[in-house]
C-alpha cells in the first residue's frame, strides 16, 4: 500500500499543518454526518480549533469552563443518554486531570472520545507542567481504552471520522505544532493496523504521531539508497497490531521504536512486550528518558532531550 505523497522527501515543499487543525475541520463534517455528535471543551476552544464547529453547531457545543473532571463525567452521562461526546483539551489537563472519570466511563465501554492536543513537548515555552509525557501510560492501562495518534493532518481528518464511528472510549492525540503533511489524503487507515511507509530488511523502525515524519527524515538520511530500514507508522497505540509488527521484525531481526513520550509507560514498552513474548529481537526505544521538560521551543526540546532526527539517525546508524 502506498501511503506517502509523491514529494514526501522534500520537506520544504510539503505543506505544514498541525493535526489539531485537521480535527477542527473534520469534526464539523463528522457532526454533519451524525446528529448525535456533541463537543465539550474546557475553556480552550481556540487551541482545539473548534471555531468552525462552534459557529455551525452552537447547540451541540458545550463550554464546560476550567473543569475537566466535570467535562469527562458530563460526557459519560451524555453517552449513556445516547449522544457521542468528544471531550477536548490539552493532554496535560485531559486525561491529566480527569483520568478517574475517564476510567469510570470505560468500565462499561461507554461511547465517548477524548481528544487532546499539546502532547509531549508541544506546548514548549509554557514549560513542564503544561507539557505531557505521561498520557499514554495513563490511558493504555485502562481496560477497553483505544488510543490513536495520527501522524499528520490528512490522517487526522480520516481518524476523526473513524473514531466517531467506532463504539467505546477512544483517546486521540493531536499536535500543537505544524508538521509536514506527507500522507495521501485518501490513504487507507484502519484503527489497529500499522502502515508500512518504507520497506527494508535490516531494521524495523516504528514511530508514532509527531515522531513519524521526524523519523522518516532520519531514515532517509541514513538509508540513502533505501531497502535497509522498514518504517512503520503506528497511528494506533492500543490495540497494537501484533501481526503487522511481528511480520516486520521476523524479517529484519532488529527493532527501534520512536515516540514523544516517557519511555516508562509509552508505546515502546507495549511493543517490546509483544516482541519479547513472540519473537525476541534486539530492541531500542527513542523517547523521553524519564524526565520532565522545561521551557523552550519544541524543536530545541526535541534536540536537548534527544528525540529529534539527529538523535534518531544516530541510533539507526548504530543499530545497522
Amino acid at each position: 500500500m502506498d501511503y506517502l505523497l509523491e514529494k514526501y522527501k522534500n520537506e520544504s515543499e510539503l505543506e505544514k499543518m498541525a493535526t489539531r487543525e485537521a480535527f477542527g475541520v473534520a469534526i464539523v463534517s463528522v457532526a454533519n454526518e451524525n446528529d448525535d455528535v456533541v463537543v465539550l471543551n474546557a475553556d480552550l476552544p481556540g487551541s482545539l480549533k473548534l471555531n468552525d464547529f462552534m459557529e455551525v453547531f452552537p447547540e451541540r457545543y458545550l463550554q464546560i469552563g476550567v473543569a475537566e473532571q466535570n467535562m469527562a463525567s458530563i460526557a459519560i452521562g451524555l453517552s449513556h443518554y445516547g449522544k457521542i461526546p468528544f471531550i477536548t483539551s490539552f493532554a496535560a489537563f485531559s486525561p491529566g486531570l480527569n483520568i478517574a472519570q475517564i476510567r469510570i466511563g470505560s468500565i462499561k465501554n461507554q461511547n465517548f472520545k477524548v481528544v487532546s492536543s499539546h502532547y509531549g513537548f508541544h506546548v514548549g515555552p509554557d514549560g513542564a507542567s503544561a507539557q505531557m509525557e505521561s498520557d499514554i501510560a495513563m490511558m493504555k492501562a485502562i481496560p477497553n481504552m483505544v488510543i490513536v495518534n495520527p501522524a499528520d493532518y490528512n490522517q487526522t481528518k480520516t481518524m476523526t471520522h473513524l473514531i466517531s464511528r467506532a463504539k467505546g472510549p477512544i483517546y486521540m492525540k493531536l499536535t500543537r505544532e505544524k508538521f509536514p503533511v506527507f500522507l495521501k489524503e485518501d490513504a487507507h487507515t484502519e484503527i489497529g493496523k500499522v502502515q508500512k511507509l518504507l520497506s527494508g530488511d535490516k531494521l524495523t523502525v516504528i514511530a508514532t504521531g509527531s515522531m513519524v515524519y521526524e523519523t522518516l527524515q532520519a531514515v532517509l538520511e541514513v538509508d540513502k539508497d533505501g531497502g535497509k530500514v522498514e518504517l512503520l507508522n503506528l497511528h494506533t497505540i492500543k490495540p497494537l497490531d501484533k501481526e503487522g509488527i511481528l511480520e516486520s521484525v521476523r524479517k529484519t531481526g532488529k527493532l527501534l521504536i520512536v515516540e514523544e513520550h516517557n519511555i516508562w509507560g509509552g508505546a515502546g514498552e507495549s511493543i517490546s512486550r509483544i516482541v519479547a513474548e513472540n519473537h525476541p529481537v534486539f530492541t531500542k526505544i527513542v523517547g523521553i528518558y524519564d524526565t520532565f521538560g522545561e521551557s523552550g521551543s519544541h524543536r530545541k526540546l526535541w534536540e536537548k532531550y534527544e528525540i529529534d532526527r539527529v538523535a534518531i539517525a544516530s541510533q539507526i546508524r548504530e543499530i545497522i
Binding site: A72, I76, G77, L78, H80
Partner: peptide, 28 residues
C-alpha cells in the same frame, strides 16, 4: 455498574454522579 438492569450510572468514586446526571439532563 451499568449493565445491571435499572442502574443508570457506574459509581463507586464519589463526586462523579451529579456531573453524569448533568450530562443526561443536557442530552434530554
Amino acid at each position: 455498574k451499568l449493565g445491571i438492569p435499572g442502574v443508570e450510572n457506574t459509581s463507586g468514586l464519589l463526586g462523579q454522579g451529579l456531573s453524569q446526571g448533568v450530562g443526561i439532563a443536557l442530552g434530554l
